[in-house]
Design a protein around this nucleic acid. Structure first.
Length: 362
DNA sequence: AACTCGGGGAG
DNA sequence: CTCCCAGAGTT
């Protein structure tokens, strides 16, 4: 008689991978690992995880930091709302819970950035509670195990709970076993069913529908946008601006610019957007760089131009959080930029090593 | 339920 | 190139 829960636990014990948060006992460190892992691959998370915890070793340190510092530590990880929510949640925890995470899933769920999955993961892994933690991997494993095309969250929840009920109080290890199985064996394509500890219980394997489970939603084709942006030089200083906190890339810094309208050249768009957004008049000098970048739901081609400041904008000296602001090129590394801008900065600093004249200097 | 929100690795 | 990932918030 098959016993999926015990098969999963036994399999998990034999192959504990080195995963951020896996060997941790501190709920805060598990929390950070789970949030970083949302929609993000484990290899991507690892380097961020260590440096983030070194920079913010506990909830109090995170709550006491500025959002800019947290975003800088998050730079390149994507979904920057996660960093904003983590920061907000830390402050709520200091105010309402004495700087500790609550153990109750419902209270966890009420914190910003903690949804059904993360609340279940924390409750089970950090606090040993018998709660399900259904992420994309677990959803796929359970869909195949029961041969379900599109199980709803309540159904998945119930399936996970029934496994947990057979797991002898080992909810955390069982949840992690399901996730591990999904990421290493029960993969979206080319699953390794011969290596699967629960293949004897798998209804999809029995029916030959493994590759069809779970069903995929049809996807739309990605629209493409051309963006014009400017490296506005004022002597040896560059103009950067902070994006609004809500919305795409919220709170990150960027070189000012915007969408190219129909009948407009990228250079014209750059000059117009700088004037409209920052009230700064410029003269476009020459193309600086072009970067293509893909987001989840659209693609952009970023056309960047060297430009000369003419008038308007902030004073040369400004407070640390003022936007827009003038910075020296070597100061750019202190600010959190989107990946598309970061690629430009890399190439800019490489070019900086070769002898040349600044476009804006006399 | 549908849509928004990044980035990167695998195939 | 396409797909999709240790999801959550908003509408």
């Amino acid at each position: 008689m098959s016993d999926p829960a015990h098969e999963l636990l036994a399999w998990f014990r034999t192959r504990q991978r080195a995963v951020p948060g896996r060997r941790e006992a501190d709920p805060y460190r598990i929390w950070v690992a789970e949030v970083m892992a949302q929609q993000t691959r484990i290899q991507t998370v690892a380097p961020y995880y260590d440096s983030f915890l070194e920079r913010f070793p506990d909830i109090a340190a995170l709550a006491a930091s500025s959002l800019d510092d947290v975003l800088k530590a998050w730079e390149g990880l994507g979904y920057y709302g996660r960093a904003r929510n983590l920061h907000r949640a830390a402050r709520e925890l200091m105010r309402d819970y004495g700087g500790r995470l609550p153990e109750d899933p419902a209270r966890l769920r009420a914190l910003p950035g903690i949804g059904p999955y993360t609340a279940g993961a924390l409750a089970s892994i950090a606090f040993g509670r018998p709660e399900p933690a259904v992420d994309g991997n677990v959803r796929r494993v359970l869909s195949r195990l029961r041969d379900l095309e599109a199980p709803s969250p309540p159904v998945l929840d119930a399936l996970a709970r029934s496994l947990i009920a057979d797991a002898d109080g080992e909810a955390g290890p069982l949840n992690q076993a399901l996730m591990d199985l999904g990421s290493s064996v029960c993969t979206p394509r080319s699953p390794r069913c011969p290596d699967c500890p629960v293949s004897a219980s798998c209804l999809s394997l029995e029916r030959g529908t493994v590759s069809l489970r779970p069903g995929r939603r049809p996807r739309r084709e990605l629209p493409h946008h051309d963006i014009g942006a400017a490296l506005v030089w004022r002597g040896s200083m560059l103009l950067i601006a902070r994006r609004p906190e809500d919305g795409l890339l919220g709170g990150l810094w960027e070189f000012p610019g915007g969408k190219v309208e129909t009948g407009e050249s990228p250079a014209e768009a750059a000059r117009r957007e700088v004037r409209e957004e920052l009230d700064v008049e410029t003269e476009i000098l020459r193309p600086a760089d072009t970067v293509r970048h893909a987001y989840s739901h659209f693609r952009i081609t970023l056309h960047l131009f060297h430009a000369r400041w003419v008038s308007g904008g902030p004073p040369l000296a400004a407070g640390p959080a003022d936007s827009p602001r003038w910075v020296r090129p070597d100061e750019l590394v202190l600010y959190a930029f989107p990946a598309a801008n970061r690629a430009i900065i890399r190439r800019l600093s490489r070019a900086e090593e070769a002898p040349h004249r600044h476009p804006g200097q006399a």
